[in-house]
Structures are given as C-alpha cells and as structure tokens.
Design a protein around this nucleic acid. Sequence first.
DNA 1: CAGCATCCAAAGCGATACTG
DNA 2: CAGTATCGCTTTGGATGCTG
Lengths: 126, 126
Amino acid sequence: MAKAPRNGPYICGIDAALDVVSGKWKGLILWELDEHGVRRFAELRRGLPGVSEKMLTQHLREMEADGLVRRQVYAEVPPRVEYSLTEHGRALNEALAPLGAWGVERIRRERSDLVEHRDAAALPRP
Amino acid sequence: MAKAPRNGPYICGIDAALDVVSGKWKGLILWELDEHGVRRFAELRRGLPGVSEKMLTQHLREMEADGLVRRQVYAEVPPRVEYSLTEHGRALNEALAPLGAWGVERIRRERSDLVEHRDAAALPRP
DNA sequence: CAGCATCCAAAGCGATACTG
DNA sequence: CAGTATCGCTTTGGATGCTG
C-alpha cells in the first residue's frame, strides 16, 4: 500500500516539507541522487548501507508520488531503471542545505559533549 | 519510555537534523516557540490543534533531551511550567526557514493542482 | 495546571521468499 | 536486475482516567 494520505491540511510550510522527507532513508536518498545525478536501483542500495530492498522501493515510490524523484525505465534485458531528482527535488535539496549544516554542527557538538561529560564525572562538585 | 536511541552513527548532517525534527508536531512546536518566545503547556496545546496531551509531553521531553527546548518549572500553586527555545533550538529554526519556504511552495502547487482537477471535472470541454 | 499510566490501533520497518 | 508478496516485530500516535 502507498503512504497513508494525510488527514488534515498542513498548518505551515515546515509541516508540509517535513511530511515528504520524514522516513528513515529519504534524506540520504535525496543526498545520493543530488550527488550523483542519476542512480540505478542497485547503486542506491549500495549507497545506503543497511537499507532493505523493500524500504528502498517504498521510499522511492513515495518520493515519486510526491514529485521529488523521476523514475526512468528502459525496456531492456536485463532490466534497467534509473532514478534522478526532479526540479522540485533539487529545490528541496537546496532548501535542506542549511539544515544539513545545522546537523553537522549537532554531530560535532555531541561528540564534544561526550568528552565534557566524561570530564564532569571525573571532577569533584564545585 | 523515552525516544528509542539511534542504533548507528549519522551518515550526514541532514540525517542528524531530520532525526530531531521527525515527529508529528515538532515542526509546529518549534514554530510556536519561536513565534512567542515563551509558552506554557496549555498555551502550546491550544496552538497545536489536534495534539493530544501525551504527544505534546512526549515531544517536549524529547526536544528537551535533544537540547532544543528549555523547561522552566515554577514551584507555585497552581503549578506553572514555561517552555522556550535554547540557542540551538533557535539556530535549528533558522536552518528550517528555507525548508518552510519550500513547503509553502509545495502547498501552493498542490492547491492549484486540485483546482485544475476540479475544473477539469466540473467544466465542459472547451 | 501540568502532567503520568494504561490500553489500543495504525504505521514503520525488516527478513524472507518468489517473479518477469 | 529490479522488483512484488507476505509475515511479524517495533515504533508512533490517540483516548481515557487519575494525581500532586
């Protein structure tokens, strides 16, 4: 079955945008397609370590339905299918850039927090 | 129970950022707190039409744990608790702005699609 | 007022097996 | 190669009732 349709209307843009990128792998898929331009199913699979075949298919179908991804099928043997971003998908990716930067900062912060906590545990209370 | 801890490390910043904003109401909570600066529990509840008490509590706790939200408790009767954004929360909000703009554009696009479909169904063929 | 506890349904996700 | 089908576990979200 396809993605469950949203019951109510969106309240704001953030809401509408998060709806299409919420999914364990969607951010990575976007990133992978933006990076390489065009990718085949198996290539994407290799680029997303740990993704199951089913989830990859499901996410790609949803993103196609949301108008983010284009799916080009070649009638060949063996079969070949190529995925790429649509114009909207590329725009979304650009809109995600600042968020990505924030995320990188968060990762960096968490790493140094670990160090601080280790220090705090070792030091006596002031 | 708290949010399930992520099993693996983040692959990219988008990943790390989406992890903290994925949740049915987190985008709206961020928006509400940014808009008003400080909000009490019941005020937030009113600002998020349809949210259940449980989900609001759960999301606020997770966002507190993620360092996005500050929770200030006043030892009074009746009890009072105020929520506001931390510095990181505000930074996240700024990083979300382009995404919000994309979302608004998406909503607009979908509406005009609906109109086109309605017109196509209701109007006689030219 | 601001919550916590409990139960329940739906959605998300993974593993496996099979197909054109 | 690029999927589809099915099963079952886990996570998310909602409804209700109770408490300091």
